[in-house]
Amino acid sequence: MASYRENLDEPAQLIQPLCSCWEDARDLLREWREENLRNSEQVVEVGDFLMQGGLAGKLGDEVWPAYEQIFLAALECGRLELAQVCYKQLRRQFPGSLRVAKLEAMRYEFLQKYDVAEQKYQKILEGDEANSAVHKRLIAIHKAQGKIPEAIKELNKYLERFMSDHEAWLELANLYIAEMEYGKAAFCLEELIMANPQCHLYHQRYAEVRYTQGGTENMELARKYFAQAAKLNPTSIRALFGLFLAASHLAAQQKGGGTKSSKSENKKYAAWAAKQIQERYEALGQREESQVKALTATLDSLELS
């Protein structure tokens, strides 16, 4: 089994290997699993390391989730032979498992044999109708074929039954954004904010959608939600930039109809956000001085527009 690195032009020794012993590999894989990171390239590299050294057996019971993880990453990286190795191990260990059957169908998805994959998924659903992972795969098939409207329809049906599925709500929001239906995407994100009011990322995302929609009302909403995101996580530069942009936009927009007080208020918010951003950059250290200058220039130019 060749490492994918040999495909690259760079000499292999220039790149530091990710892991040198199986303990490292295990810890890395576990960390990535728990963090929910999509770094398939690295997972495949670690997987290669484990398979080539015949070290997979050392992981004990943890080898099974690791196999599943490597399988998925291998499919993402087009490494079918590595995926095959993982799949065979899993099938040998869990012959009747629906979760492994799902992996088999995913392999067909990778081969773009969507009909076969769909048949396999339907077969799993006959046995276990409430298998939400399989329902989601059926939606992903639509997505993979570029049929976004169908995917949206199916996902809406799915969410009627599995209302507390955060991942699905987020996916629906993403699909609506892809279709430029920002109002509906915003509704999905509102749903997520309600389920998880402490999460600054949902607030920020919602504000971004509203900002994209434009118009005074949406811009005001965007400003409020960016402010909430910045309040929940004061270190979030993205939220601060959003607050700055939304506020300065409002300050510039209200030249005609808006009241004077709200205009000056928005100016105040923008100035506050700009100051916060500047302070964060300055806190990075003296060496970043040129960056701070560039940042000041950027903020000034954004405010003028």
């Binding site: 999509r38 993402e76 087009g78 490494r79 998805e109 990778f110 991942e167 996916e171």
Partner: peptide, 16 residues
């Protein structure tokens, strides 16, 4: 759960 496999990954990293 919503990964799709029709992206640059198969072109960039595939060995077969």
């Amino acid at each position: 759960s919503f990964y799709t496999f029709t992206h640059r990954g198969r072109v960039l990293f595939s060995t077969v």
